[in-house]
Amino acid sequence: MSILTVKNLTKRFDGLVANQDISFDVAKGSITAVIGPNGAGKTTFFNMVTGVYKPTEGSIMMEGQSLVGLKPHTISRKGIARTFQNIRLFGSISVLENVMVGLHNHLKGSLLGIMLSLPSSKREETFAQEEAYRILEYVGLAEFLNDEAQSLSYGAQRRLEIARALATKPKILLLDEPAAGMNPRETKELTDLIFKMREELDLTIILIEHDMKLVMEISEHIIVLDHGEKIAEGNPEEIRHNPKVIEAYLGTGAASTAS
């Protein structure tokens, strides 16, 4: 069953076509990878799904509802969360608070209740702290709870972005180059985390990634973009042997990884 369906999705910036007539389905509970060379339009696709950019043409449907034209915060409430290619943490607040921001829409406290310091808002605040801490434990960052987000290592920052996204309790999680800049050990831990999240949290995961080993290992379905167009789609095995893909993106390096 598909949870996300895009049809004829196109995005133009002035003259430049960043996404051209893209259509595909994402199966519920799957891990789908979007790959392609730099500038292929992968991030643009994420930006349209999350409401950061408005599509020029085409439709994006989540469980039968259109997402086109919705604001990012509304889309977040519908259950789509994301991380960013160029890390966008709330740098100068603490790690725990970063995750607590993700809980924003799951806290009901009203302005007045907070100002008057009603018991219910106090309780809710405590709950938020505990919940955020639990999520930090889940991604393995609990020990850094009081550190400033910007003081974390690169790999830890990427994990924190994931933790923050999880806090919104998404149905679909979009990861934009989550392994970029990670060393092999961190990449391995990330791979484990992605599996774990999918299994335990009832998530559909779509990720953009350049690390082919990770992509092939982790994803059930792969979509290949090049110059804004979808040039191939299929399971890792099919993609590995697709001549178009090899030519456009994987090049000779792919053959050696494959063998």
């Binding site: 950061v52 990012p72 915060h73 977040s76 607040i93 607590m100 921001v101 924003h104 907070i114």
Partner: peptide, 25 residues
């Protein structure tokens, strides 16, 4: 130290990420 204060700080630190966290900018 409430969700509102955190939303303010989130908007200050990075408004695009804040929106993606469900914050009405």
């Amino acid at each position: 130290y409430s969700k509102i204060g955190r939303a303010w700080k989130a908007v200050r630190e990075n408004d695009i990420a804040a929106q993606s966290m469900g914050i009405h900018l």
